[in-house]
Simulated scan of single mutants.
Amino acid sequence: MPPEGDPALAAGAASHWRALEGLYASAAINELFASRLEIERQGEARITFEVTGKVYHAAGAAHGTIYFKMLDDAAFYAANTLVSDRFLLTTGFNLHFTKPVREGLVTAEGRWVSGKRRVLVAESRLVDAEGEEIGRGTGTFMRSRIPLSGLPGYGPAR
Rank of each mutant, 00 (worst) to 15 (best):
H96I: 09
L105C: 03
E109R: 11
R117D: 14
S114P: 06
T98F: 09
F97C: 05
K116T: 15
R117V: 14
V113A: 13
E103L: 06
V106R: 00
P100W: 05
R117L: 14
F97L: 13
V106S: 04
A122R: 08
R125P: 07
V106P: 03
L126Y: 00
L120C: 02
R118T: 11
L120N: 01
R111M: 10
S124L: 05
P100L: 07
V119W: 01
V113K: 14
V113E: 15
T98N: 05
S114Y: 01
H96V: 11
S124H: 03
R125Y: 03
G110D: 07
R102W: 00
S124N: 07
G104C: 07
S114K: 12
R118L: 07
G115L: 04
R118D: 11
G115M: 02
T98E: 14
L95E: 09
A122S: 12
G104N: 04
T107K: 12
T98S: 14
F97Q: 05
V121D: 12
G104I: 07
V106I: 05
V101S: 04
L95M: 15
G104Y: 03
A108Q: 01
V121C: 13
R125F: 05
V119P: 06
V106M: 02
E123H: 02
K99C: 11
V106H: 01
L105E: 11
T107Q: 14
R117H: 14
R125I: 05
L105H: 05
T98I: 13
R102Q: 08
W112D: 10
G115I: 05
L105I: 03
S124M: 07
E109F: 10
V113R: 15
W112F: 15
G104R: 01
V101R: 02
V101A: 14
T98R: 11
L120D: 01
S114H: 06
S114E: 12
R118H: 09
F97I: 10
T107W: 12
R102N: 02
V119S: 08
R118W: 02
G110R: 09
V113C: 10
V121E: 15
R125G: 11
V106K: 02
K116C: 13
G104Q: 03
F97A: 04
S114G: 10
V121W: 11
G110P: 09
L95G: 12
V106L: 01
G115W: 02
W112Q: 08
L95K: 03
V113G: 09
L95R: 03
E123P: 01
V119T: 13
G110V: 10
V121I: 15
G115D: 02
E103M: 07
P100E: 02
F97Y: 15
S124T: 05
L95N: 06
V119K: 06
R102A: 07
G110Y: 09
V121M: 14
K99S: 13
